[in-house]
Nucleic acid binder design. Structure first.
Length: 420
RNA sequence: GGAGAGGUGACUGAGUGGUCGAAAGUGCGCGCCUGCUAAGCGUGUGUGGGGAUUAAACUUCACCGAGGGUUCGAAUCCCUCCCUCUCCGCCA
């Protein structure tokens, strides 16, 4: 969330940001509530101070054998009044908090305005692969090599679920292991295995809630959510903690399946592995000093790029426009990998700087060198998500006979085979 | 699921209705002493909100797992929930 004091002194700036992000929330209503709350708080404090003062005198008077019935009767009135004020104060505070939770993060000044069409091309690596035969797409390749069974997955779970089988399962497992090893051995992250279900507080901390409640799978009975990304469990690792000055930065990587209802996106790029309800992803998360987050974002993009390069996959880097940014992000780069059979660039990684937005919500702080307690900056990004990496890989490395060559980097994970 | 114990500051741990934001110890900061490290002595050391201020000093309120309640007054009593530990049961 944003700092209430910041909103107070920059209401126009915040309102503009809300609009640029295509979000809806009433900043002036929020500020009115804020003022109301402060007024109530002031009244409460005054009255409460008096109550405390008199209450402290009562035992003294009693000890001196003075009659306190009159004073106690007066105090009863004050106590009642305090209760009333407190009720209103609590209600106002709750409403204010709820409203504050719907205010999105402010896009970084470098972020282009507008929707997806205004995403900014940053750079690309490699070129679109040329074939001397007509390349097949993921559907044909997975079918020919019997890598997936979508029909049977649908039987038990519905559309949008996947069964990897045989060599497909091996490839999926190899990718996950390769990604994890890469993050740990080459990029310097510490590996975590975290819960795949988290509670409401955690989901609010990272900013999935309240906005994305309908996009997540919820376990009603326990009010838990299946994580749509490991970000939810990894970022909450330090929730409600104050880290020591020397603790930063912290770099974590975690594998997790990701569960997304994808409500409202039916029929949109849903072929095969393109958009599924459950997929595998290796996530990178960093907790850093506020001074470092801008540079670290670039580093993390490089971390993810290095993996695509190792797999010999052509990709481009784009910076998301304000309207395409997620609720909590201030700046996001997407990595889009080229899938030659499908003929499209597919998003395989989204890397974001949340600055202090998540840290405020999840209450993640550190003690700076000046001894002041401050919010850390959090960043995260996929490194990488498997389904589209899988598509790009098999489409890029396919052979004329329909087989798939395994890129060098991945061979140690597949018994050093050259062909899948 | 059943029975019991417990959740206090960075940590250990006291505190069962009144001046407790909270003893003591550890750790950490600063100073002194001691001419290595150590030990010793002194002193300081929570977070957040409001008010005031150029700023600090200042002042006030909240916070002892969370939320309610009783009371003039709650870390302390009552209720609900959450979490941890031990034992039993059940399932894998």
């Amino acid at each position: 969330m944003l700092d209430l004091k910041f909103i107070r002194s920059n209401p126009e700036l915040v309102s503009t940001a809300v609009k640029n992000k295509n979000e809806k929330c009433d900043i002036s209503a929020l500020l009115e509530l804020d003022e109301k709350k402060r007024k109530l708080q002031f009244d409460f404090d005054q009255l409460r101070a008096e109550q405390k003062k008199v209450s402290a005198e009562i035992p003294v008077l009693k000890k001196a054998k003075k009659d306190t019935t009159a004073i106690m009767a007066d105090m009863k009135l004050i106590a009642d009044k305090l209760k009333d004020i407190n009720t209103e104060l609590t209600e106002t505070g709750n409403t204010l908090d709820a409203l504050l939770m719907t205010v999105p993060n402010i896009p970084h000044p470098a972020v282009p305005l507008g929707g997806e069409e205004n995403n900014k091309f940053i750079r690309e690596w490699g070129t679109k692969k040329e074939f001397d035969f007509a390349p097949l797409d993921q559907m044909e390749l997975t079918e020919r090599n019997e890598l997936l069974d979508l029909k049977r997955a649908a039987k038990m779970s519905g559309s949008g679920f996947v069964i990897y089988q045989g060599k497909g399962a091996e490839l999926e497992r190899a990718l996950i292991n390769f990604f994890l090893d890469f993050q740990v051995r080459k990029n310097g992250y510490t590996e975590l295995w975290t819960p795949y279900m988290v509670n409401r507080t955690a989901m609010t901390g990272t900013g999935q809630l309240p906005k994305l409640e309908d996009d997540m799978y919820r376990i009603e009975e326990d009010d838990m959510f299946l994580i749509p990304t490991a970000e939810a469990s990894v970022t909450n690792y330090y929730a409600d903690e104050i880290l020591a000055a020397g603790d930063l930065p912290k770099l974590f990587t975690a594998f997790s399946p990701c569960f997304r209802r994808e409500a409202g996106s039916y029929g949109k790029d849903t072929r095969g592995l393109q958009r599924v309800h459950q997929f595998n992803k290796v996530e990178m998360v960093r907790f850093v000093h506020p001074d470092d987050s801008e540079a670290v974002l670039e580093e993390m993009v490089n971390n993810a790029e290095a993996i695509l390069q190792a797999l010999g996959l052509h990709y481009r880097v784009v910076m998301l426009a304000s309207g395409d940014l997620s609720f909590a992000s201030s700046k996001t780069y997407d990595l889009e990998v080229w899938a030659p059979g499908t003929g499209k660039y597919l998003e395989v990684s989204s890397i974001s700087n949340f600055v202090d937005f998540q840290a405020r919500r999840a209450n993640i702080r550190f003690r700076d060198k000046d001894d002041k307690v401050k919010f850390v900056h959090t960043l995260n990004g996929s490194g990488l998500a498997t389904p589209r990496s899988f598509i790009a890989l098999i489409e890029t490395w396919q052979n004329a006979d329909g087989t798939i060559t395994i890129p060098e980097a991945l061979r140690p994970y597949l018994q050093n085979r050259a062909i899948l």
